[in-house]
Design a protein around this nucleic acid. Structure first.
Length: 427
RNA sequence: GCUGACGUCGCAUAGCCUGGUAUUGCGCCGGAUUUGAAAUCCGGUGUCCCUCGGACUCGGGAGUUCGAAUCUCUCCGUCAGCGCCA
């Protein structure tokens, strides 16, 4: 959510941003006019409150002086003020609510370096990494490998849960844990604090960190308690300091989170979504930074560099893309994706998303820090380190051999007790 | 789940019984003093609208009242004990 100050003083900046995104200005205009209305109502209510307070003070003075006659006289004069205040106050609250409901839908101001484009076709290449794996046989897609090696049981998971759930079995499950351990240690070594968050959140906190449309398409709504299963640990970790004024000496706060992630994936279809590529539940190791506004762009590059170094250590071939205006969404001001090469499929596909949300989440969450010039919103950033299900797919496809076995990346050998390949599960 | 205690400005703390508009300390910011620092002293330090000024704020919401941190109801949370339990 953008600060009201933006709408009052820098509406042109928001309009210019809407132009870059190619969206109309109606919502901006609505916010501005509702704000004017709210200010007027608020002012009127304040004036009457002032009358009431003055009277209350005079009554107190009169009573102290023992002049109960005077006190009663004032009292009779102001007895109807309460109703007026209530009426105006209710109108003001209603107007403010309407204003903010619209404000929530207005997207963040994009960074100048975001390329202009209508959809993901408009994303631009940032860099290439690793070495393209070459095969002297036709590389398989991961769904063949998991079936052949009995590493994933989709059918039985569908029976007890539903489609897009899975049992991970044998060496692939061991690799999944090794990936978690490896990437957590990697970030802990770089000064990030490991945090395991709650995996359910209430509505209020959740509205602070995500696009409102996600409630319909992404989140599991857990009743009767009214919780939402987290779609990523970004959400509980970013909302962690909600309604707080953070000591500046604590900034920047750097966290590495690990949690299961739950996504309904409403409307997702397609051949490329087979196997365990797009699933309702997976584990993700996530990087989070909460920092001062003038530091966030440096931290954004730091998060990307962490990903690059981490994925380089896994020995994978991938590219980094700069997400364009049309593919950005509401919350981020700039976003990089890492796309891993899937030789079986023959394309690059998204495995990491690295965003600077500037003060957009912080404004909704009321997360501020003390400055010599009053309190100011912090900036929040997040980036995948490793989403294990997708990293497993990339590893399987890039490290596969002609007999259908998969070599273990050298940095993960430590968890395999001398074993060099992932072996087939026998049931 | 039951019983009890508690929830006050970044932190800590007073006020609550007996309703009259948030105390004090620490931290932080600014200033004075100093070669510099410490110490000391002075001022500032929740939010909103700004029309010198005003309104709001004591976990959230509601009620009683001219007026609520203070009284009443309700919800949430923390702690302790009991129960249940991975």
């Amino acid at each position: 959510m953008l600060e009201m100050k933006m709408f009052r003083e820098l509406a042109d900046v928001i309009r210019a941003d809407h132009n870059r995104r190619g969206i109309p200005h109606d919502l901006i205009n609505q916010v501005i006019s509702l704000d004017e209305e709210w200010k007027e109502l608020r002012y009127q209510a304040d004036q009457i409150r002032r009358q009431r307070n003055d009277a209350a003070r005079e009554i107190a003075t009169a009573k102290k002086a023992g002049d109960s006659e005077k006190a009663d006289k004032i009292l009779s004069e102001v007895s109807n003020l309460g109703a007026q205040i209530e009426e105006l106050g209710a109108k003001a609250d209603e107007t403010e609510k309407a204003r903010d409901a619209i404000r929530m839908k207005i997207p963040n101001i994009l960074h100048d370096s975001v390329p202009i484009g209508d959809n993901e076709e408009g994303n631009t290449s940032h860099s290439m990494h690793g070495k393209k794996p070459e095969f002297d046989f036709k590389p398989k897609v991961h769904n063949e490998l998991i079936e052949e090696n009995k590493w994933v049981d989709l059918g039985r998971a569908a029976k007890i849960s539903g489609s897009r759930f899975y049992y991970l079995k044998g060496d692939l499950a061991r690799l999944e844990l090794a990936l978690q351990q490896f990437s957590i240690d990697f970030l802990v070594n770089r000064g990030y604090t490991l945090v395991q968050p709650p995996v359910m959140m209430n509505r209020e906190a959740y509205e602070g960190v995500t696009d409102l449309t996600d409630f319909e398409t992404v989140m599991y709504d857990i009743q009767p308690d009214g919780y939402y299963a987290i779609a990523t640990s970004e959400h509980p970790l970013t909302a962690m300091f909600m309604d707080e004024i953070i000591e500046p000496s604590l900034l920047p706060i750097k966290m590495v989170g690990v949690s299961p992630c739950f996504r309904r994936e409403v409307g997702a279809h397609g051949l490329s979504d087979k196997g365990i590529w797009r699933v309702h539940q997976f584990t993700k190791v996530e990087q989070i930074i909460i920092c001062k506004p003038d530091e966030s762009w440096n931290h954004h590059e730091e998060l990307l560099q962490n990903c690059i170094d981490l994925w380089d250590e896994l020995g994978l071939y991938y590219r980094v893309v700069n997400i364009c205006t049309g593919d950005m969404g509401t919350v981020a001001a700039k976003k990089y994706d890492l796309e891993a090469w899937l030789p079986g499929v023959g394309t690059f596909k998204e495995v990491v998303s690295c965003s600077n949300c500037t003060d957009y989440q912080a404004n909704r969450l009321k997360m501020r820090y003390r400055t010599s010039d009053g309190n100011s919103s912090v900036h929040t950033l997040n980036s995948t380190a490793v989403a294990t299900s997708r990293a497993l797919v990339a590893i399987m496809e890039q490290y596969q051999e002609d007999d259908g076995r998969v070599r273990i990346p050298s940095k993960l050998l430590a968890w395999f007790n001398g074993q060099t390949h992932l072996e087939k599960t026998n049931w």
